[in-house]
Design a protein around this nucleic acid. Sequence first.
DNA 1: GACAGGCACGAACGGTCGTACTATTATGCG
DNA 2: CGCATAATAGTACGACCGTTCGTGCCTGTC
Lengths: 204, 204
Amino acid sequence: MTPAALKATKGEETRAQILAAAVEQASARGFESLTIGSLAERTGLSKSGLFAHFGSKLDLQVAALDEAARQFTEQVFLPALKAPRGLKRLRALFENWITWPQRARLPGGCPIDAATREYDHHPGPMRDAVIDRQRLLDRELSKTVQLAIDTGELAPGTDPAEVAFSILGVVLVFYRSELSLGTAEATRRARTAFDRLLQQYTPR
Amino acid sequence: MTPAALKATKGEETRAQILAAAVEQASARGFESLTIGSLAERTGLSKSGLFAHFGSKLDLQVAALDEAARQFTEQVFLPALKAPRGLKRLRALFENWITWPQRARLPGGCPIDAATREYDHHPGPMRDAVIDRQRLLDRELSKTVQLAIDTGELAPGTDPAEVAFSILGVVLVFYRSELSLGTAEATRRARTAFDRLLQQYTPR
DNA sequence: GACAGGCACGAACGGTCGTACTATTATGCG
DNA sequence: CGCATAATAGTACGACCGTTCGTGCCTGTC
């Protein structure tokens, strides 16, 4: 009926709701916690009814990871593209990144962070998907850094991958410290670390 | 019999073996994967025989976390104390830290890293233990940084907690990048990031 | 009004989970 | 040695796991 969702059949809508719940749960308790039963209860479906939307539990997990990545792209990466290329865009990306879990109502923190740790050393489709995402992220982050070099805001000769590596470090320690330091304090520290990091690479 | 383990009864020995296996498994698949059955098979005990060593699964998990922390202290922190206080000790600590999983034959990476992500947002004894460990680590790391300020190797007025925060970030991104970049490349990048970080705070 | 498809349901399966209980074996001390 | 006790095995339980299967409700089409 609604013009924006012309092709959304009933089934697709239900599937989307399931995946939304799945991402939320994965954020809090990890992708391994995505059991058919618990998700069925959460969404008000029967186990078999929910199961029918995916061929297997593994497919469900992969779909949930894809959905999480989609949300990340949509809410973190794409909005940053509105900022002018260079440092401003890099800063916007960083800000979107560390505020994403709160904005997206993912109380358990970044689900992709969770997935990475869960499947890093666990061969299978989930690990493959996780590594792909990680490499993609690295590449996009490096590109964003490169643009800041091109604009002259970062020193020429700067290794974009090196900067991307360190930025990811700041994001990870932010996520980790949020609980022990509190969000406000962790945010403050993360911004300071980010600023000092960039300052290192700015031309004098 | 052995003079070093005078008071080690049979049961304590078995318990130690169980915990060693548990830490190894937790490193690879997380503490939530520590099931009675799988550990019993791993150690050649029966389910009930293994279970008798701990009152519950939760106790087993907590004991495994304690054991992992003990190993970390023993193999990462204490050896660094042999280095003279200041930058040398800080560097030794960092080096021990990022090489620990390999040296300790923990193919799944740092088990405490795993535990932190698993229980960050999951109230209960495991989370309490994890947060305690994290705060303890922060404190010890900050102290080590402070010593490098005292020796004049880092600039006076440096905030030790700020430096500790960033160092932890480098360690985390190292762990994460090990798989996608390979250990050699990740180690190289981590060392570079660590050096540049310290350089920021060295008196000119 | 008959029919077809998409969707969800309930019941049941073999399996593993954590955890009680009881029984059996191993150990270490006098 | 003999015996108390510690250590392990055996068995059974209810709960939940992922999955399969048969069934019925809706909705839209001829």
